[in-house]
């Protein structure tokens, strides 16, 4: 396994490795974190990498940035199995699983066209996190599938 990683994605010196992301979700992980490369971050992405735990997985490495707990929590919505490794001087100094937060703010947009947040109002979107989905606190719409498609641009 580790040989495979080395072949595909090089080690980082300081930053965060998000491992065990469900295959196909790596770009959504980057979208949630607001990383699109325009700020000059060094980012490595592995997709459909063989994994013992998930058969195949995605992996994201971000050089020079340690994720906050809030950012990690939001990842749980699309990557519930993910592990977060904080790396300093090539060593993993912290390793933890993601936990589902109670609410997420400003990350997702409500798919209900009749919701007040879909109007031109100065409001930050807010969703309660359910066991199997998310729920807009304004219009109360529940979304269980395709949560990644709600990520705000």
């Amino acid at each position: 396994m580790s040989e495979n990683h080395k072949l595909r994605v090089s080690k980082i010196r300081n930053g965060t490795v998000i491992d065990h992301v469900h295959a196909g979700q790596a770009l959504n992980v980057l979208a949630i974190l607001g990383i699109d490369g325009s700020d000059g971050e060094e980012v490595s992405v592995g997709m459909n990498v063989p994994s013992d735990r998930l058969a195949t997985k995605d992996i994201v490495k971000v050089e020079g940035r340690e994720l906050s707990q809030d950012e990690v929590d939001v990842l749980s919505l699309i990557a519930p199995e993910a592990t977060i490794n904080i790396v300093r001087e090539y060593d993993v100094v912290e390793k933890h699983r993601v936990e589902r937060p109670d609410t997420v703010e400003g990350i997702l947009s409500c798919p209900n066209a009749g919701c007040i947040t879909a109007a031109d109002e100065p409001v930050t979107s807010r969703f309660d996190v359910l066991a199997d989905g998310v729920r807009c606190v304004y219009c109360e719409r529940i979304v269980r599938d395709e949560i990644a498609s709600l990520i705000e641009p």
Partner: peptide, 13 residues
């Protein structure tokens, strides 16, 4: 009264 769901909640904030 407002045509959009959640309008009163937003107003209250």
């Amino acid at each position: 009264r407002h045509p959009r769901q959640g309008a009163a909640k937003l107003a209250s904030e």
